[in-house]
Design a binder for these strands. Structure first.
Lengths: 285, 285
DNA sequence: CGGGTGTCATACCGCCAAGGTATCGCCCGT
DNA sequence: ACGGGCGATACCTTGGCGGTATGACACCCG
């Protein structure tokens, strides 16, 4: 045995993560585009190499051991790091420097146009591509698909990212115009008890689909199937049949600009500086 | 061409990192334990896959392109993440929970004994293994060889780590007892101009060896071959033939406890809490 | 209770690609 | 002009990855 072998191929990690997420060899194999037997063998070999049982499988069901849960978490992070390395290398090679910013539609508190204009006016500014994505903007920064993202703390996880706070916002409940609470000047969270979930995009109401786009959520609200508690800045973009009512005791939300904490790019640094300045200026009109 | 292939095997990354660090295919191949031709081919293939030139090699010399520098940095991080995943998985499998703490001999400001005692008294405390290492305690935390480390900011790089500040210290110059400055009550950095390097462990004086152990450095100081500027807490552990003189304008050093920022371990959290408390208590005696 | 079905493991095979050896091509120092 | 050093190329061998077929076992059903 050679226990000093402290590495594993990304292929093996990918395979394990697929099985660990699916908890089903057949489905995982299909997702990976290979047949099931090689997958079984690969997992066995991985377990032998690590000297650790990763999955408890009786003939009916597959579940993660403690070691397996560790490898799922850590393996996902490691794979993201590898993808990030590849993507950033490709970007560095194509000599057309640019920035990719991940934002959520309607989630920029209307700061984005001004930030982009101010940055574009900066000497040495580089083209900025905006990528809209509601659910995985943090992951996009971590794995190199984006150079920076607008995120909402503490709703979204910021581990592994450097951040600049742009704006602290209170929250409002979005309600159909005809709702029993729609006329109130303000609410407390307790007033919303018993209202249907989800409260925000990304939350997964049981048995329902994943809300991937805020328009879907707003539609659900309009139908009375959901109540959303969101940063107050979206009040400007509400559909005509919805109203936003301040929720006094909802925790305030912070709009942050996040980027990989080891980023070394001159352009990114300038963009961050500009964004912070614009936000500061907007803070005291 | 299949540009959607966003991953790379760890083997390829390891190979590239070796070449990028050595800037020499032959040496890199020897270090990797393979022959040179397969290594050349592997790098070429990697470049083809990424669609990017990584190394500028004329027949005499090898140097990194910009993309190559990116891949070196990012690849090292990704490989550390993979190693960390493997090690943490192995640890999680062997069901004997414990903590590994990386410290530098003499670099704990004498806080360690008290921290260990206080933690051991905590309910649910777990055995703590101390690993002494002067040069790569940060890397040990990042790649999973240690759960936490005592580091000195800003001397050591903290990116990617969560930290708790334990102690802010001013610095002293370590001098031979007979040195012309040894009698002074205090110094400024300017007084040390012209003194021989290195100033601290890990610094590499030109043409000399790497100082891997503080005893070596102290020996050099005693021989008049070096001057060290170090946190004042080491004054208690100086050899009889050395003295420490405060350097008034040296930037203060902060002793921090650092751990992987995505750590989820209950034991680690308790240890950090205890350490912070001990340090706070020690701060106001 | 016996056949059917779903699931993971095993057996066996073919082939690609990683690694080895030998050699080339090129630049350099002398 | 020549030998030495270095990376690239040519060619071969083989380990291991992936595929198909099948086994072993548990559960469901009529």
């Amino acid at each position: 045995m050679t226990p000093g072998d402290d590495t594993v191929e990304t292929r093996e990690l990918t395979y394990f993560v697929a099985v660990a997420e699916e908890l089903h060899f057949g489905r995982a194999a299909r997702r990976l585009g290979i047949a099931q037997p090689p997958l079984s063998r690969a997992i066995q070999q991985l377990e032998r190499r690590l000297g650790v049982r990763l999955l408890d499988r009786d003939h009916r069901t597959v579940e993660l051991t403690e070691a397996g849960e560790t490898l799922l978490r850590e393996g996902q992070a490691a794979l993201a790091a590898v993808s990030a390395a590849v993507r950033r290398t490709r970007r560095a090679g194509r000599h057309a420097p640019s920035l990719v910013l991940a934002a959520k539609p309607g989630g920029d508190a209307d700061l984005l146009p001004e930030i982009l204009a101010a940055y574009a006016a900066t000497p040495g500014a580089v083209p900025v591509d905006i990528v809209f994505n509601a659910l995985e903007r943090g992951a996009m920064v971590r794995d190199g698909r984006a150079d920076a993202a607008l995120l909402h703390a503490p709703r979204e996880d910021l581990t592994g990212l450097a951040v600049e706070e742009l704006l602290v916002e209170s929250q409002v409940a979005v309600l159909p115009r005809g709702h029993r609470l729609a006329g109130r000047a303000e609410l407390s969270m307790a007033d919303l008890d018993g209202e249907p979930l989800p409260r925000w995009p990304g939350a997964v109401p049981e048995g329902s689909f994943r809300i991937a786009e805020s328009g879907q959520l707003m539609h659900l609200v309009a139908l009375g199937r959901a109540v959303a508690v969101v940063p107050q800045s979206i009040r400007g973009n509400l559909r005509h049949d919805l109203v936003g009512v301040p929720v006094t005791d909802a925790p305030p939300t912070t709009l942050v600009l996040a980027w990989p904490q080891d980023a070394r790019s001159r352009a990114l640094a300038a963009f961050v500086r500009t964004a912070a300045e614009v936000a500061r200026r907007a803070g005291r009109p």
